[in-house]
């Protein structure tokens, strides 16, 4: 975390020395993105706070924690495939879930399916690529996400 702040400060300084105008433009752009995402982020925090209050910790660990194996991966893949959560929200959420006892393996499957598999956007995707190609891409991505999750589980 500290590392990222440091990189940001160095990047801003270097950028400022190189081109003041460009730096202002970038900073304003970044700030605007932050203010745009803020309400969505706060809503997510509210929901997760309530959810973690309602769902006992042991239950989360049993179903999604280390050693949850097949069930954990299946739940993560299902949730990741059907939901549409932007990355700016998904990663903070994943960070909280990690602290709540959800394993890296499960998080990797959830994040990868979230990003690569889109059941809700399948009709739109079919319009671009045709139904066959869209189904194939989503299917292969789902399989890939499970493989990535298992590998993460072996190495983390």
């Amino acid at each position: 975390m500290f590392f990222l702040i440091l990189i940001t400060l160095i990047a801003i300084m270097v950028s400022f020395l190189a081109d003041r105008q460009k730096t202002y433009k970038g900073l304003i752009k970044g700030m605007r993105m932050f203010l745009n995402i803020l309400p969505v982020l706060l809503n997510m925090l509210v929901f997760v706070s309530i959810l973690l209050y309602l769902v006992p910790n042991e239950l989360i660990i049993r179903w999604l924690g280390k050693g949850s194996g097949f069930y954990g991966i299946t739940i993560a893949a299902l949730l990741g495939s059907i939901s549409m959560i932007p990355g700016f929200i998904a990663f903070p959420l994943a960070g909280i879930l990690r602290k709540g006892g959800v394993s890296y393996e499960v998080l990797a499957v959830f994040i990868t399916t979230l990003m690569m598999v889109g059941v809700l956007t399948l009709p739109l995707e079919s319009k671009y690529f045709g139904i066959k190609a869209a189904l194939l891409r989503n299917g292969l991505s789902l399989a890939g996400a499970v493989i990535i999750g298992i590998l993460i589980g072996l190495f983390m």
Partner: peptide, 29 residues
């Protein structure tokens, strides 16, 4: 719930703005 929320919120508000600033800088360069 308040404790949860406050914990998550303080942790994020400390560095999220930095991340977006970094993204903005990357975007222009």
């Amino acid at each position: 719930a308040a404790k949860n929320f406050w914990l998550f919120f303080t942790e994020m508000i400390a560095f999220l703005p930095f991340m977006f600033l970094l993204i903005g800088i990357i975007d222009v360069w």
